[in-house]
């Protein structure tokens, strides 16, 4: 076989550089090899391109659908969609505004994130770098399991089990730290934004923990040993080698968690006593509502205007999620030179 003497035609394009001397190349087989390769390349490129384009197409189609469905309702709206705190779109005089919903959505999700993130990182680090291997395996399995539990379960657990406890804790916080802006307000009977945030935090915790653990396990041993060889303690090693390396991944995991919190419908609908207010009194009953929960509660019995209004609110949720993701991208992009992956 004359091909036997050829340099391998695969992989490295530099090795097949044209004009390289002393390569007595019989042109026919080489060309054949290259076109075969080209064809594979082209097929792959076409496939991935169409996959990417169809994803964009789907997103675009969703956006167009939402806009088209929302416009008639927005035209019928007798209130200001962007500033009014009412939601009565099924009325003969439809009136609905997004501001209370958007505020409650962002507030509950941000609170959930603030509660979940430190714990999730702790859990992830414990599993990846502290726990004995056996325990780490069990814990990792449990976390993955929790991440797969459907949200209705969290909602039911939140209302049946957690609500009472959160009322007690809320009353305590209100009494002893009432000066703190979030802990004001009266009517501490449960079903508050605080409860919703806690439920959301518990829901997103396993997601963030599970993904972060994966990222932390990816940190090359060589870098961890570099830190240890400098005399780092385990915690110092985690701070110098593990956390910075994992940062983009953790941000990604956080965004995924935040996305789930922002879009969570049923769990929030179950635990929350919704109100169309813009309020920081998270401990109070009727302290807010979220876009997704409002859709869940209103969709079944909505008139066509009502459905249009809910879709318009969905559009706002879409926008909020988009903004959050853009911010995350920007954070990662700003430090891209220092990205962990070598």
């Amino acid at each position: 076989m004359s091909l036997g003497s050829l340099p391998p035609v695969t992989t490295d394009p530099a090795s097949a550089r044209p004009g390289a001397p002393d390569q007595p190349v019989p042109s026919l087989p080489r060309t054949a090899g290259r076109t075969a390769e080209r064809r594979g390349d082209r097929a792959f490129r076409g496939l991935s391109l169409s996959a990417g384009l169809s994803l964009l197409g789907i997103i675009l189609a969703i956006a167009v659908f939402l806009v088209v469905k929302a416009i008639p309702a927005l035209q019928d709206n007798t209130a200001s969609f962007l500033t009014d705190r009412v939601w009565d779109p099924n009325n003969a005089q439809p009136a609905f505004g997004i501001v209370a919903l958007a505020f409650g959505t962002v507030l509950s999700s941000v609170l959930a994130l603030l509660m979940a993130l430190p714990v999730a990182l702790g859990v992830a680090l414990f599993i990846s770098h502290v726990a004995p291997r056996r325990l780490a395996g069990v814990l990792g399995y449990v976390i993955d399991l929790l991440a797969a539990v459907p949200s209705v379960v969290y909602g039911l657990w939140g209302i049946f089990f957690l609500n009472d406890k959160v009322v007690v804790a809320s009353a305590f916080l209100h009494e002893h730290a009432g000066w703190f802006p979030l802990f004001g307000g009266d009517d501490i009977f449960g079903r508050s934004i605080f409860l919703a945030s806690i439920v959301l935090a518990i829901m997103i915790l396993p997601i963030i923990a599970s993904l972060s653990r994966e990222v932390f396990l990816q940190v090359p041993v060589s870098q961890q040993e570099a830190a240890l060889a400098l005399g780092a303690t385990r915690w110092e090693m985690i701070r110098t080698a593990v956390l910075p390396f994992g940062k983009p991944g953790v941000i990604g995991a956080t965004m995924l968690g935040l996305g789930r919190a922002l879009g969570e419908t049923i769990a929030v609908a179950i635990v929350l006593s919704p109100a169309f207010v813009v309020s920081l009194d998270i401990l109070s009953t009727n302290s807010g509502n979220t876009i997704a929960a409002n859709v869940a509660l209103g969709f079944a019995e909505a008139s066509s205007t009502g459905r249009g209004a809910l879709i318009a609110s969905g559009l706002v949720l879409f926008a909020i999620t988009l903004v959050v993701n853009v911010i995350a991208r920007a954070i990662i992009y700003r430090r891209r030179e220092f990205a962990g992956a070598l």
Binding site: N90, A269, L272, S273, P274, A296, L297, E301, A302
Partner: peptide
């Protein structure tokens, strides 16, 4: 207590 969803 009232219904938080819309209901007949």
């Amino acid at each position: 207590f009232v219904r938080s969803d819309e209901s007949g």
